[in-house]
Design a protein around this nucleic acid. Structure first.
Length: 523
RNA sequence: GCCGUUAUCGUCUAGCUUGGUCUAGGACACAUGGUUCUCAGCCAUGGAACCCGGGUUCAAAUCCCGGUGACGGCACCA
């Protein structure tokens, strides 16, 4: 076993483009990326598209875009991770890095060479068993309580038999699995040992130009000089197969680190049933990259100390595989929400505005960046996700329809425990009380309107406004002024404070909304 | 079924290597109170866990043995 500790650090993410970038794959990407950045190594993106049936270019595009969006940039890969890098791309080479190509579908010549080598060395052979035969054998083994492995029946076919059979039906290539223990050191789990005899002769390729996962991964990790294989725990039992393959070629062994898996609330494998699973879904739901990165890092890893709100640079500095947890982790969306709200507060207003713009457009905002920034300044404290902006800040762009009872304080339904709409018919005296209240509130709103009319536009600043209104607002009855004012301005029962809204809306729009409220109360 | 991994508050986790400093710490969520016209935020306070059974030891979340549960793999997917 070669000492891989002295090799330059090179890690890889090897997604297969059979779906959009999964949040679990993003977590694996992050841990590889953090490890590389922390150690000054290289992070490589390799597209594992050997399964032509299931692979689709559009998923490769989605994976690449999602990784870019998360800011997990790679040093080598099928295309550059940033425009800057793209400029440095060597002429004549369509990929970035010295060990390409980085799509398995473009490396078929390489696999063929190694496959032939294995065949020539009699370490692999053609197998002609049909799927039906294999399935039958599998079931038989299973019912006897034996591991469902292949019998090795085609292992010793003579050359003539091979020729005869290959004319008749399709074949696959199997690797002769040595009856040996495969032992490896896992950085997270310590020493792990498997008895490879239990696996049987695995299929490593459908034919010379159709390699399968375990084979292609071994060839690529070697030829791309991968020093550390950091991947999900679901690959733990693939590792011995890959190690035995490496040994058959005389390759050196990379260092392994198998990450704990991510689960749903019921501890089943993370699925769409309970959570959004693609990074794109989280982007659309209004999460920002820094929050997702922070959250994912904490899923299975923890720094020394109690600090959990961590920026990217801190993560890079603090990260170590030694502190990765062994057990699987449940995906806790509430914590993600909290971290997202924290990172939202941390963003500078310009970047926040850029990110919120698409969400604001859907509720009627158009074009005016100054106005959007003002709205964001007072809304950023109260939103957890960018998408929350639609609900909580929509009223700035378009006043919602509301009934006149919204303007009343004390709140009728709170005071009597009865919804005002019911009160009218059932309890006439309550309805009478409410009419009285409406008149009072209308008077208060008119007083406020008067003050507002006299206030110059340039005094529409939160602190000034509070001072301007102070004399007219009854000390012991603030609610009968502030609630109707705020409700009139927002059309909502819950919103930021009235002075904050006044500042953003400005004189003209504020007066318009106040006027409307007074009308609603019959004034 | 077989092989492997794993087990601390509801959830994410610290502590376990080198037993005592752990009446088990932090965070999210939850509850209560404060700030307040409302909501959010912020602040304070609170409830809440060492999978089970043995053993070693003066002393075990930490070491040993045996169970059990959960998860992953056992593809001509990756």
């Amino acid at each position: 076993m070669a000492d891989s500790s002295k090799k330059p650090i090179r890690v890889r993410l090897a997604p297969s483009p059979t779906g959009p970038l999964h949040i679990g794959t993003a977590r694996t990407a992050l841990f590889n990326w953090l490890f590389a950045k922390n150690k000054g190594g290289k992070f490589i993106l390799r597209i594992e598209d050997t399964d032509v049936e299931r692979s689709d270019k559009k998923f490769e595009v989605d994976i690449i875009n999602s990784l870019k969006w998360l800011g997990l940039d790679w040093d080598e890969g099928p295309i550059a991770s940033s425009d800057d890098e793209a400029k440095n791309q060597n002429k004549g080479s369509y990929y970035i890095g010295d060990y390409g190509p980085y799509r398995q579908s473009e490396r078929l010549d390489i696999y063929e060479k190694y496959l032939q080598q294995l065949l020539d060395a009699k370490k692999a052979y053609y197998c002609f068993c049909s799927k039906e035969e294999l399935e039958e054998e599998r079931q038989a083994k299973l019912s006897q309580g034996l591991p469902p492995r292949y019998s090795g029946r085609c292992r010793n076919l003579a050359v003539e038999q091979i020729k005869e059979k290959s004319a008749a039906r399709p074949s696959v290539i199997r690797f002769i699995m040595p009856e040996a223990d495969a032992v490896f050191k896992d950085l997270i789990r310590g020493q792990v040992k498997f008895n490879a005899g239990l696996f049987g002769d695995i299929v490593i390729a459908k034919d010379l130009r159709s390699p399968l996962y375990n084979f292609a991964a071994v060839i690529d990790d070697e030829t791309m000089r991968i020093s550390h294989v950091i991947r999900g725990e679901d690959h733990l039992s693939n590792t011995p197969k890959q190690i035995l393959l490496q040994q058959a070629f005389g390759f050196s062994q990379p260092v392994y680190a198998h990450l704990p898996l991510i689960f749903n609330l019921d501890r089943s494998k993370l699925s769409k049933r309970f959570n959004a699973v693609s990074v794109e879904d989280y982007r659309a739901a209004g999460y920002i990259p820094d929050a997702i990165i922070n959250f994912l890092a904490l899923l299975g890893w923890h720094p020394e100390g109690d600090k959990e709100f961590l920026e990217r640079s801190e993560l890079v500095k603090l990260f170590s595989l030694q502190r990765v947890q062994k057990a699987g982790a449940v995906f806790n969306q509430e914590k993600l929400d909290w971290l997202n709200s924290q990172h939202l507060k941390n963003l500078d207003i310009g970047e926040l505005a850029e990110r919120i713009a698409p969400f604001a457009e859907s509720v009627g905002w158009k074009g005016d960046g100054d106005f959007l920034r003002k709205v964001i300044k007072i809304e950023r404290e109260r939103i957890k996700k960018l998408s929350d902006f639609r609900e909580s800040a929509g009223f700035f762009f378009k006043l919602p329809d509301y009934g006149s009872t919204l303007l009343l304080w004390p709140r009728p339904e709170l005071a009597e425990g009865i919804h005002p709409e019911f009160a009218e018919g059932i309890y006439p005296e309550l309805a009478e009380g409410q009419a009285l209240l409406e008149r009072q509130i209308a008077v208060n709103l008119k007083i406020l309107r008067e003050v507002l009319e006299k206030t110059p536009e340039q005094s529409f600043i939160q602190a000034d406004l509070a001072a301007i209104f102070e004399p007219v607002i009854e000390k012991n009855n603030k609610g009968t002024f502030l609630w109707p004012l705020r409700a009139a301005l927002s059309g909502l029962s819950a919103s930021p404070g009235p002075f904050e809204i006044l500042e953003v809306l400005g004189k003209t729009e504020s007066l318009r909304r106040l006027e409307l409220a007074i009308q609603k109360l019959g004034g």
